[in-house]
Design a protein around this nucleic acid. Sequence first.
DNA 1: GACAAGGTGTACCGATCAGTACATATCTTG
DNA 2: CAAGATATGTACTGATCGGTACACCTTGTC
Lengths: 187, 187
Amino acid sequence: MSASKRDELVQKALKVFYQEGFHATGMDKLVAETKISKTSMYKHFRTKEDLILATLRLRDEQFRNFMIRRAQELSSTPEEEILAVFDALSEWFKEDKFKSCMFIKASSEYQNPEHPIHAVSAEHKRLIKVYFKELADKAGLKNTEELSRKILLLKEGAIVIAHLHRDIDPSIDAKEAVKALIDTHRA
Amino acid sequence: MSASKRDELVQKALKVFYQEGFHATGMDKLVAETKISKTSMYKHFRTKEDLILATLRLRDEQFRNFMIRRAQELSSTPEEEILAVFDALSEWFKEDKFKSCMFIKASSEYQNPEHPIHAVSAEHKRLIKVYFKELADKAGLKNTEELSRKILLLKEGAIVIAHLHRDIDPSIDAKEAVKALIDTHRA
DNA sequence: GACAAGGTGTACCGATCAGTACATATCTTG
DNA sequence: CAAGATATGTACTGATCGGTACACCTTGTC
């Protein structure tokens, strides 16, 4: 049972689930897409839900890595980095394969707060808020708890609108709004 | 073919789709829930998709009616009304049956921008943005186009976070953020 | 090369999916 | 009350769902 086969499955399943949705993607489609047999899949993951959870954990890591790394590349101070996050988002929105946030979609299909998929999605958002808070602290701003929550709202709103109104780039508005908010949180 | 039966079907289907999701709700479940036979359903709607579209159109009307009416009740000037929207949202978030925004979820399950369900969801958000713009105009603010888009971002972000972090009420943060934004858009 | 162990593919399971055929019931109009 | 039309319930269709039984095939070890 090669671990690489498992990784390959998770990576390809991640792409299909992200593009097509969770309920809309059957295990048979994954077999066709990955050329991995169903038996092997169920050797690695007891249920479809377990596979989904694995893809979400990979996505969490990949997405936060991308966002943070790109924001750091585009900035030179913590305060700039907060704003640069929205430039990174803008790049993401422009990708052809952009189809909203995987965790918003996951929590849309698995709505029960007790559901593990919902819980993993909530944790992802919490980690992003923590990232904003740490940046705001480094930038020497005040009320960073509140500020980071507000920035998170603008980020999530931008993703939702980018998905629904593909002709608009909401990251520009979001970035400007964040600028104004930061000014109200200076020490 | 009574029109009231049709309305009854749409109303009950709306509740079930909202609570359980679209792909997760089979027509047989709707039969069990509404006590309306499948034959009758398919007399009123050619496909499940048509029924979903009908529920979304009803939801659009119901939700905007609620939001606007409640915001007006809680305010006495256009500027106050903008802020009062977030008090109305707060009330909505606190309802037990609150399960995020039906249109965010619809566009999560029907991601193709060309899909009618996606289009109806996009239009719903556009109408809400127009409402914010009209309020901002009445309030005598400047750059109301940009401002209304920013307010929309905060509203959508608040909905997403209210759904994922049920122990938090993001409408408070959103409202404060809107206050700060309005100040930057004064004539 | 014999043999066990474990990964793989096929072909299948009952359940459920969206949608329909058809027979029965109910209502409208003479 | 009779006849035609419309609404309804049951019982079904082929397709697909998540998941599994089982035969096959590769691999390491002796």
